[in-house]
């Protein structure tokens, strides 16, 4: 019985540290603006992973059609009519430790490409989003800024 108690206590301790880690990972949740200012992305948590979807577009309509922009550059033809607004461009990020979330991907609707991605929180209001191909050296970092409701 004593051994069982120790086992459960250990599991509990491990799980508790996970909770602390998860809470720390939740700092990334919020609304963010990529450097080009053309979109706003809401990062949220689903299960234990973090996702980011486009919730605002500077230019919501396609100038050619006058209709809401769709993901026409997607290499999968079946997805080319999916609206850009609401699209999940950040997927499957796990909180690693410290200020880093990794294991995810970022999708660029401008060219229909998906890149490996690591997110680093530089400070509470700044994210370095590094999309790369295979290894981090072959990549580009975009700096995202946190947004909040306008102060009145």
């Amino acid at each position: 019985m004593k051994n069982l108690f120790l086992l459960l206590f250990s599991i509990s301790l491990f799980s508790s540290s996970q909770v602390i880690a998860q809470d720390s990972g939740d700092r990334i949740i919020g609304i963010w603006e990529p450097s080009n200012g053309k979109a706003r992305v809401k990062i949220e948590k689903i299960g234990t992973r973090y996702y980011g979807k486009i919730v605002w577009l500077k230019e919501p309509n396609d100038p050619e059609t006058g209709k809401p922009k769709v993901d026409k550059n997607n290499p999968d033809e079946k997805l080319q009519n999916v609206p850009i607004k609401g699209y999940r461009l950040l997927k499957d990020f796990a909180f690693k430790s410290g200020d880093e979330w990794d294991g995810g991907t970022i999708y660029d609707p401008e060219n229909g490409s998906t890149y490996d991605c690591v997110i680093t929180m530089k400070d509470n209001n700044t994210l370095d989003i590094r999309g790369f191909i295979g290894i981090s050296a072959f990549g580009r970092t975009d700096v995202w800024k946190r947004l909040q409701t306008q102060k009145k």
Partner: peptide, 9 residues
């Protein structure tokens, strides 16, 4: 709800 936002920083 995401129309009127400012930089937090």
């Amino acid at each position: 709800q995401y129309d009127n936002l400012d930089f937090a920083d």
